[in-house]
């Protein structure tokens, strides 16, 4: 079977991209291999681990469970878009750094994208709510405690921000 290709145009971290993709290319692989945005990590490839979480039209989704061709005409945000242009970390990234919320860091991009969206929707979460929000992101290093601490601190910083 000849690979079937489609022209797609999408916005990634505010930049418009046009590419031609094979139908079967997963969105996660498209981001990593075609756009070179390797910050989106690929773990399980069946929607269990959450490492590949990105924002699709503002909502967190598993990029391994979507096809690149489905992103045609949509707006995506990946971990590369979090820090400012001057390299200043996003408050949620700074909090993960300050609270030692990562060890190997493989799950971190997915956690950052999940929680960026969550803290917009719920700026003042309880610890229990943070743990619920993190339930779709597996981390095998930290035991989650420092991630939870980081998210509660990030929520506070974001609330205080103008």
């Amino acid at each position: 079977m000849q690979p079937e290709r489609h022209d797609i145009e999408l916005s990634v971290n505010g930049t418009t991209c046009r590419r031609t993709v094979e139908s079967r290319i997963l969105l996660s692989d498209f981001l990593r291999h075609d756009l070179g945005l390797a910050g989106t990590h690929v773990g399980c490839e069946h929607g269990a681990c959450g490492a590949c979480t990105i924002l699709f039209d503002g909502a967190p989704i598993r990029s391994c469970l979507m096809l690149a061709v489905q992103a045609n005409g949509h707006e995506l945000s990946t971990v590369e878009g979090l820090a400012g242009n001057d390299g200043e970390l996003h408050p949620i990234q700074q909090a993960m750094h300050d609270h030692h919320g990562l060890q190997c860091g493989y799950c971190t991009p997915g956690i950052l994208m999940t929680m960026t969206a969550y803290l917009k929707q719920n700026p003042q979460p309880s610890e229990h709510e943070v743990r619920e929000a993190l339930s779709g992101n597996l981390c095998r290093c930290t035991g989650y405690q420092n991630v939870v601490d980081a998210m509660l601190a990030a929520a506070q910083t974001l609330r205080a921000a103008p």
């Binding site: 929607g47 959450g50 979480t53 699709f56 909502a59 967190p60 989704i61 598993r62 469970l65 979507m66 999940t114 969550y118 619920e132 929000a133 339930s135 779709g136």
Partner: peptide, 12 residues
């Protein structure tokens, strides 16, 4: 609904 998978899955 809260028991169905995870928030990222429920978005899709």
């Amino acid at each position: 609904l809260p028991h169905i998978a995870h928030p990222q899955i429920r978005n899709r």
